[in-house]
Computed example of a mutant assay.
Amino acid sequence: MLNLEAYGDKEEVLARLAQSRRALLDRLREAETSWLTTPLREEAWTPLMVAEHVALVEESTARVLRRLRRVAAGEDLPPVPFVPGEFKEGKPQAPEPVRPQGGLSLEEVLALLERTRGLLLEEAEKADPHNPATFPHPFFGELTALGWLRAALYHEEHHLKALG
């Protein structure tokens, strides 16, 4: 099982997120158009869809960080139903809300990545990494704000490796 704590403290996570984002953007910008729009393997997403998915996960993570901050501030928020992650042939499957729709151009994907990273960093800046409030992650269980940031880093690095 993956040990998210190995990803370090908030500052380390944010520094590595900056590195992984630079690498992802470089990979996308330097790629041939045909590679960007070709599935990575049979029944898989295209590289542009992978990048869209990374952005959707970041947007979702930013919303979770905002919720955790509000809970920590004493707001009484309605419960959110927990939906555990699904596996297919031993591999985690993206939950429906973060599955890419596809059809976006490189420019559109780059703009989406920029917008969602901005949201994530804005919420990360406000997040208290020591607050014990948690929210369930579909694959990692109950995570604090720092845990969610670590999961976002793991997620981007995981997909960056898959893109080669």
Rank of each mutant, 00 (worst) to 15 (best):
M1N: 09
M1W: 01
M1S: 12
L2A: 11
E5D: 14
A6L: 14
A6W: 02
D9W: 00
E11D: 13
E12K: 12
V13S: 01
V13Y: 10
R16D: 12
R16A: 12
L17K: 03
Q19P: 04
Q19Y: 11
R21W: 05
R22Y: 08
A23I: 02
A23N: 08
L24S: 11
D26L: 10
D26S: 15
R27H: 11
R27G: 07
E30Q: 15
E30T: 13
S34N: 11
W35P: 03
L36N: 01
L36Y: 02
L36R: 03
T37M: 10
T38R: 12
T38G: 07
T38P: 05
L40P: 01
L40H: 04
R41C: 08
R41L: 01
E42T: 09
E42Y: 05
W45Q: 05
L48P: 06
V50M: 01
A51E: 05
A51V: 00
V54Q: 00
A55K: 11
A55I: 10
E58W: 09
E58Y: 12
E58D: 14
S60R: 14
T61H: 09
T61F: 04
L68F: 07
R70M: 06
R70W: 07
A72I: 08
E75T: 04
D76C: 00
L77Q: 03
P81Y: 06
F82W: 03
G85E: 12
E86K: 15
E86C: 06
F87I: 01
F87N: 07
K88S: 10
K88L: 13
K88D: 06
E89D: 14
G90M: 08
Q93T: 13
P95Y: 13
P95S: 11
P95V: 11
G102W: 09
G103V: 13
S105H: 00
L106G: 01
V109S: 00
L110Q: 05
L110T: 02
L112G: 01
E114L: 10
R115A: 15
T116G: 02
R117A: 14
G118A: 08
L119H: 13
L119M: 12
L120I: 04
L120P: 00
L121T: 09
E123A: 14
E123M: 04
A124V: 13
A124C: 12
E125Q: 14
A127I: 03
P132A: 11
T134A: 04
T134H: 07
T134S: 01
P136H: 02
P136S: 04
H137F: 09
E142V: 06
G147Y: 01
L149R: 01
L153H: 05
L153D: 07
L153G: 00
Y154D: 03
Y154E: 04
Y154N: 01
H155D: 13
H155T: 12
H155E: 12
E156F: 06
E156A: 06
E157Y: 06
E157S: 07
E157W: 08
H158Y: 15
L160P: 00
L160F: 13
K161E: 15
A162E: 15
L163F: 03
G164W: 13
G164V: 02
